[in-house]
Simulated assay, not measured.
Amino acid sequence: MTLYAIFDPKPGKTDLPAAIPETFSWFAALLPPLFLLAHGLWLELVAWVLAVLALMVLSGFIGDDAAVLLYALGAAWLGFAAPGLRRHALAWRGWTHRGERVAVSTDMAQLEAIR
């Protein structure tokens, strides 16, 4: 079972509540730019691209192995930070945090939040 943070949409919208799992995100760790694009984290995407460009430039000074290791470390960090980034983005867009639910899946957490 997983802990989910439940967010209600802005007043006047008919969207379902969002359920953000509090777990490591493999999608964010393996495909960081696609994860950031999929969740509309534009500022974080710009920061990620700048960090990768900086690693490309610095790889000549620190070595290719160190650059790959730093990239993998950054990707793993993003996998752990993904739920917090998504929660912050929803709060910034006007969604309200209702609370937490423990559920088997995201769909079940949404269904429990609707009731």
Rank of each mutant, 00 (worst) to 15 (best):
T2K: 11
T2H: 05
L3G: 00
Y4C: 03
A5V: 10
I6T: 01
P9Q: 04
G12I: 05
K13Y: 06
A18C: 04
A19Q: 05
E22Q: 15
S25D: 09
W26A: 10
F27Q: 12
A28H: 03
A28K: 05
A29Y: 04
A29V: 01
L30E: 15
P33N: 03
P33K: 01
L34W: 12
L34I: 05
L36W: 02
H39N: 15
G40L: 08
G40Q: 10
G40M: 08
G40K: 08
L41Q: 04
L41H: 01
L41R: 02
L45P: 07
L45R: 09
V46S: 09
V46F: 07
A47E: 14
W48H: 11
V49I: 15
V49D: 10
V49G: 01
L50Y: 03
L50F: 07
L50P: 01
L50A: 13
V52G: 02
A54T: 11
A54R: 11
L55W: 03
M56K: 06
L58E: 13
S59H: 10
G60F: 14
G60D: 11
F61L: 15
F61C: 07
F61W: 15
I62D: 05
G63R: 07
G63E: 08
G63M: 06
D64R: 09
A67H: 05
A67I: 03
V68I: 13
L70V: 01
Y71D: 04
L73V: 10
W77R: 13
L78Q: 08
R86E: 06
R87V: 04
A89D: 15
L90A: 03
A91W: 04
R93I: 01
G94I: 09
W95H: 13
W95V: 06
H97Q: 14
H97P: 02
H97E: 15
R98D: 03
E100Q: 12
E100N: 11
E100G: 06
R101T: 10
A103H: 07
A103L: 07
V104A: 12
S105H: 04
D107W: 00
M108Y: 01
M108C: 00
A109E: 07
